[in-house]
């Protein structure tokens, strides 16, 4: 494709070639300068890894063997984590349906979809952990604060994804519904929703997977679930127990991913 385009173009004259190669060099130089600048800003120092390798090895050693004596407690907290993720995601899906439609340029007028999109941007821009800290203050310690945190952040993400699906539908079936004299809301229920359903389901399941991962950390700021246990472990230098918790998180997250991938396959 690009080859064809190049052969079709007339051969560049000599000053053009000089200018092109100059621009190219300048581009590389700028990219290099940007990387060096970021390296300094991030205080990159790989030598520390070598110098401190003894300490790191010792710390890693403290994690093994993992201590599973309290596994019943971990399991209970793990289940709470999943429950928290389920409700955080479900509430987000319920709200993302109307919000997603209101964010779509082919459904809503600009004076609705523009402000709605900015609101969803704000929901998305703020991390779950920040929302979790705020909700812990608002509703107190515990999983409910975590549910609310996941709910708000996920609503922002799903509304955007849902509206992108709505904007890419085939408009012709919708016009077919409109031609029967149906109301605008009936056009959505019969013409739009059936078209976007597979994508919406797929996005929702994907967000559920992400939310299980997020739910394991919102506990670190007191918003319930296994994260609370992990944070206690790390702060109290109970590394063997922390290791057991991490192993359980890895297993749970992997299981959820596999199961949700299986479900998603059926809808695509």
């Amino acid at each position: 494709m690009t080859d064809n385009a190049q052969t079709l173009r007339p051969a560049p004259s000599r000053p053009d070639m000089l200018r092109n190669s100059f621009l190219k060099t300048l581009g590389y130089a700028l990219a290099g300068a940007f990387l060096i600048w970021s390296w300094q800003g991030a205080e990159m120092n790989p030598l520390v890894l070598v110098r401190e390798s003894g300490n790191i090895a010792e710390l890693a050693g403290d994690f093994f063997p993992p201590d599973f004596t309290e596994w019943r407690f971990y399991l209970r907290e793990m289940i709470v984590t999943l429950q928290l993720a389920v409700w955080g995601t479900l509430l987000a899906i319920i709200l993302a349906v109307p919000f997603g439609l209101l964010c779509s340029a082919n459904i809503a007028p600009w004076w609705i979809y523009q402000p709605m999109r900015r609101l969803m941007d704000a929901f998305r821009a703020i991390n779950e952990m920040v929302f979790a800290m705020l909700f812990v203050v608002a509703v107190g310690l515990g999983p409910f604060a975590g549910v609310l945190a996941l709910f708000v952040h996920t609503t922002g993400i799903l509304a955007k994804l849902f509206s992108e699906a709505v904007e890419s539908i085939d408009p012709r079936p919708v016009e077919g519904i409109r031609a029967t004299g149906a109301l605008a809301i009936e056009e959505i229920v019969f013409g739009v929703i059936p078209q976007v359903m597979p994508l919406w389901i797929s996005y929702s399941l994907y967000r559920f997977e992400s939310n299980v991962r997020s739910a394991t950390v919102v506990g670190m700021v007191g918003a319930g679930g296994i994260g609370v246990v992990m944070w206690e472990g790390i702060r109290g230098f109970y590394f063997a127990q922390t290791c057991a918790v991490i192993i359980m998180i890895v297993i749970t997250v992997s299981l959820v991913d596999v199961i949700s991938a299986q479900i998603r396959k059926r809808f695509i």
């Binding site: 012709r172 079936p173 016009e175 519904i177 019969f190 013409g191 059936p194 078209q195």
Partner: peptide, 8 residues
């Protein structure tokens, strides 16, 4: 193009 909703 018929304009039916194919998934219904």
């Amino acid at each position: 193009q018929f304009n039916l909703v194919e998934r219904l």
